[in-house]
């Protein structure tokens, strides 16, 4: 799971090592990347919303 999250974070930035990419694509379970993507996406949205709420005060 931790590796999937790290790969999602790398994807957010748009930079990934080729060796890591190969490892990810060799994985048997694509579901874990989808779950990690949704999770990190949600955290990002909440973070942005928090910053906006704080800035609006």
């Amino acid at each position: 799971m931790w590796q999937a999250i790290k790969s999602v974070l790398a994807a957010f930035l748009g930079v990934q090592k080729d060796s890591r990419r190969r490892e990810d694509f060799a994985s048997e379970r694509p579901g874990i990347f989808i779950v990690a993507g949704l999770l990190v996406g949600l955290v990002f949205v909440v973070l942005v919303a928090l910053v906006a709420v704080m800035a609006a005060r």
Binding site: L13, G14, V15, Q16, K17, D18
Partner: peptide, 13 residues
């Protein structure tokens, strides 16, 4: 060379 992760991170950051 094919990739250079640290340079890519710098020009993204």
């Amino acid at each position: 060379f094919h990739e250079h992760t640290s340079v890519e991170v710098i020009w993204t950051a």
